[in-house]
C-alpha cells in the first residue's frame, strides 16, 4: 500500500510518538539524573557545582551519613526481595494451576476474585492491614487469641519479624493477582494434546506439571520472576504507610531512603547517585538471572 518515500515517512510518523515520549520521560530523565549525581546539587540552593564522583564516594565510604542511609535501605530492600519473590511467584502459580483445573463456568469468577485486590490503591490496602494487624485490639490478634493460638497480643507492626510478615502478607494479598493472570494466560497456551498424550502414558499430576506444563510456561515464569524482583526492589507504599519504616528503621526501603536524602536532607545529587547505584545493582541481579536461565536452556 505504501511505497518508497511515503512508506518511510509513515514509518517515522508512526514510531515518533514512542521515540519522543521515550526520550522525554525515560532517556532524558535518566541522563539528567546521572548528570545531577556528579554535582553538588541542593534542592534549596540549586546546583553548587561539578564534583565528579564525590557523591558516589560519600555513599560508598563506611561511617558517613549517606553510607548508613544507603546500606540500611539496601539491606532492608534485599531482605524483602528474598522473602517476597518466592511466595509472589509460587503462590500465583499455584492459584493459576487451581483455576486452570476448575470447571469452565467457575474460572472467570475465581479469576476476578483473586485479581480484584490488585485494583485497590496502596493507601486503601495499607489502611486495611493497619486495622487487621493493630497490636492493641486488632482483628488478627483477636482471632488468634480466640482460637487459642496466642496467649498475648503480638505487636505486628512494632516488632520484628512480625513487621516484615505483615508487609509480606499485605504485598502478596495486594499484588498476587497480576502474576496469577500472566500464569493463567501461559497455561491457556499449553497444547491440550500434550496432556492427552501424557495421560495415555499414565503420567500423574506432578509428572504432567514437570514434563508438560513447566517446559511450556518456563519463559513466562522467567519473565514473571524478573518483573517481581523489580517490583520488590521498588518497595515503598506498604512500608511507608503500614510500618512507617519501623520498627527501628528496619523496614526503611532503599526508595524511602533515597526520598529522605532528596526531599528531607535536600541532597538531590546524593539521592540521584543512590538511585543510579540502585539501578546498577538491579541490573546485576537481573543479568545474573538471565545468565542462569540462558545456561539452563543450553
Amino acid at each position: 500500500m505504501y511505497k518508497g518515500a511515503s512508506h518511510k515517512i509513515w514509518s517515522v510518523l508512526m514510531v515518533s510518538p514512542f521515540v519522543i515520549f521515550f526520550l522525554l520521560f525515560w532517556l532524558l530523565p535518566l541522563a539528567f539524573g546521572a548528570w545531577i549525581s556528579l554535582h553538588n546539587w541542593n534542592i534549596s540552593s540549586g546546583n553548587l557545582g561539578f564534583i565528579g564522583i564525590e557523591n558516589y564516594k560519600s555513599i560508598l565510604t563506611p561511617g558517613t551519613l549517606y553510607y548508613d542511609l544507603f546500606i540500611n535501605g539496601l539491606k532492608n530492600t534485599l531482605y524483602f526481595v528474598v522473602i517476597s519473590v518466592p511466595p509472589l511467584v509460587l503462590i500465583s502459580l499455584a492459584l493459576a494451576l487451581i483455576i486452570d483445573n476448575l470447571p469452565e463456568k467457575f474460572k472467570p469468577v475465581y479469576r476476578t476474585i483473586f485479581f480484584i485486590s490488585y485494583s485497590i490503591s496502596v493507601t486503601a490496602v495499607s489502611a486495611i492491614f493497619l486495622w487487621l494487624f493493630n497490636g492493641n485490639g486488632g482483628y488478627v490478634n483477636n482471632v488468634l487469641e480466640s482460637i487459642g493460638i496466642i496467649s498475648e497480643p503480638i505487636n505486628w507492626l512494632g516488632e520484628q519479624p512480625y513487621a516484615w510478615v505483615t508487609i509480606l502478607i499485605a504485598t502478596v494479598w495486594w499484588t498476587i493477582g497480576f502474576n496469577m493472570m500472566l500464569f493463567i494466560n501461559a497455561l491457556d497456551e499449553v497444547d491440550g494434546s500434550l496432556y492427552e498424550a501424557a495421560d495415555l502414558d499414565g503420567a500423574g499430576a506432578f509428572s504432567k506439571f514437570v514434563s508438560v506444563t513447566w517446559p511450556q510456561i518456563r519463559n513466562v515464569a522467567f519473565f514473571i520472576l524478573i518483573m517481581t524482583v523489580i517490583a520488590s526492589f521498588n518497595l515503598y507504599g506498604q512500608t511507608r504507610l503500614i510500618t512507617a519504616g519501623g520498627p527501628e528503621q528496619s523496614t526503611n526501603s532503599l526508595i524511602m531512603n533515597i526520598q529522605t536524602s532528596v526531599f528531607s536532607m535536600n541532597q538531590l545529587g546524593i539521592g540521584s547517585a543512590m538511585a543510579i547505584i540502585m539501578g546498577f545493582i538491579m541490573m546485576l541481579i537481573i543479568g545474573f538471572q538471565y545468565w542462569i536461565s540462558y545456561r539452563n536452556k543450553e
Binding site: G135, N136, G137, N155, L157, E159, A244
Partner: peptide, 24 residues
C-alpha cells in the same frame, strides 16, 4: 502504660474500649 503500643499508640489506646485481655 501498656507495653508495645506502636504508632500513635497514645491516642489509639485512649480511643479503645478495654476488652478482657484483647484490648487496652
Amino acid at each position: 502504660s501498656p507495653a508495645k503500643l506502636g504508632l500513635d499508640g497514645e491516642f489509639q489506646t485512649f480511643m479503645k474500649e478495654a476488652k478482657e485481655g484483647k484490648a487496652y
